[in-house]
């Protein structure tokens, strides 16, 4: 999985206009970058290079600095999220109960890495911190569905429900 799965960028006129408005609202403010990134991610679902370039030009912040901030915080993503967002908890309890193996199995089944999205736009994988369901460890979520006490053999059947 060394080659990154790259999804082509598409934007609607509404998205472009919304981002422009966000940039104008924050322009000239100290610390404008992080709120703009949050709102941009709301608009596009993620922060690809094309969006970061618009923010860079709009706010006068260098591309390298923006990329630094985006890669520093795990809630920002440079990859789109799927229709079904899979979250595998790597908190301490889940991890010692084998969530690492669960994650490996999902990556293998979908052919993508953490923070990536399948080319058909269906699934994306996030490695999350503790989601507060330690009693069910190891835990994964798919959108709002929670699956607990998992073993790697469960994965195929669970994913099949969303295919």
């Amino acid at each position: 999985m060394s080659e990154k799965t790259v999804i082509a960028f598409h934007e609607t006129a509404e998205q472009a206009a919304a981002l422009q408005k966000v940039i104008e609202n924050h322009k000239g403010q100290d610390g404008a970058l992080i709120p703009v990134l949050h709102e941009a991610q709301e608009i596009y679902g993620y922060l690809p290079i094309e969006v970061q370039q618009k923010i860079s030009e709009g706010l006068g912040v260098t591309m390298a600095e923006i990329y630094g901030v985006v890669t520093f915080y795990t809630q920002f993503s440079t990859q789109p999220k799927g229709e079904f967002k899979i979250g595998v908890c790597l908190g301490t309890a889940c991890y010692v109960k084998g969530s690492g193996d669960i994650l490996e199995k999902i990556k293998e089944k979908l052919g993508i890495d953490v923070n990536e999205c399948t080319p058909d736009g269906k699934f994306s994988i996030d490695a999350t911190r503790c989601i507060g369901a330690c009693g069910l460890a190891p835990v994964m979520t798919i959108n709002d569905d929670v699956y607990g006490r998992l073993v790697p053999e469960d994965i195929e059947g669970i994913l099949a429900k969303y295919m």
Partner: peptide, 15 residues
């Protein structure tokens, strides 16, 4: 600029 965080932090260019 600096990218990523913690032990894997490194200096590099955008994307």
């Amino acid at each position: 600029d600096a990218k990523e965080r913690g032990f894997i932090t490194q200096i590099g260019c955008t994307f």
